[in-house]
Design a protein around this nucleic acid. Structure first.
Lengths: 131, 131
DNA sequence: GTCAATGCAAAGGTTTTGCAACTGG
DNA sequence: CCAGTTGCAAAACCTTTGCATTGAC
């Protein structure tokens, strides 16, 4: 149980504690772009006495180590966490507020920005489903 | 003086008060992607006794009315304000942390997202200038 | 046994709110 | 005047911090 999570945590040089495993498990296997609050809710139900301090600290450590991704839609200050897999963008459904991963290949960049070395691109597409 | 700002405020059905004019003036004419804090600093120097409550309220009203744009780079919780002109994206210089507007035409979308009606696209490009 | 990780509660910073006072048309 | 706007201070909110305790190896 939780071998994947444990491995990932240890690979980053951290101790695979219950709290960390549960947080990572939630982000990787259960939640879809959760906020810190979502994570607090779920982990506190599934892990007796995990404290918010630990959760915030852990999330910061995970982001530092590159195990998860943090992002916030432009104009919002809410941070959403995301498993850090391949390169993808986000489609924001403006009706539901839900995120959807979309493939990076659906967007092409022309070489207009030639004197810059692009490191990372984050794209937020706000849209609603056509009836 | 400040005719442009006044017109814009009144066009949105609001009273063009000193406070509102100064806030809008700063965002439109002086600042480059300021934060709420930048706006507080500047307006309080140029407008006696403007309160933070008013500034925050005004910013929220301006955003609602579409007079300005609010955005926060993915992963950050700081909100930056921007004059709302034509459709453009942001190039984030990862060395300096500064934003730069880039033309929307430099990015093309393939029609992979056919069942969604796209309303708005926000693109954050993190890059650094080549040597 | 030792160092890292955790929990608690308090502090921190930012934004919002309630309400009374003010102001512009 | 009178609705809309503002200022003040308090509250709300979310996140971080300090420190003592616990837990992993």
């Amino acid at each position: 149980m939780y071998e994947i999570e444990s491995k990932l945590i240890e690979k980053s040089g951290l101790t695979a504690t219950n709290q960390r495993i549960m947080i990572l498990h939630f982000i990787y296997e259960i939640a879809d772009h959760p906020t810190a609050d979502d994570i607090i809710d779920w982990t506190q139900k599934h892990c007796p006495k995990i404290s918010v301090a630990t959760i915030y600290n852990t999330l910061n450590v995970f982001v530092e180590k590159g195990m998860i991704h943090a992002m916030s839609p432009p104009g919002s200050k809410t941070i959403y966490y995301d498993k850090n897999t391949h390169h993808h963008y986000h489609l924001v459904d403006t009706k539901t507020g839900k995120f959807q991963d979309i493939d990076a290949k659906s967007i092409q960049f022309s070489h207009q920005i030639e004197d810059y070395a692009v490191e990372k691109v984050d794209v937020f597409i706000y849209a609603h489903k056509k009836r």
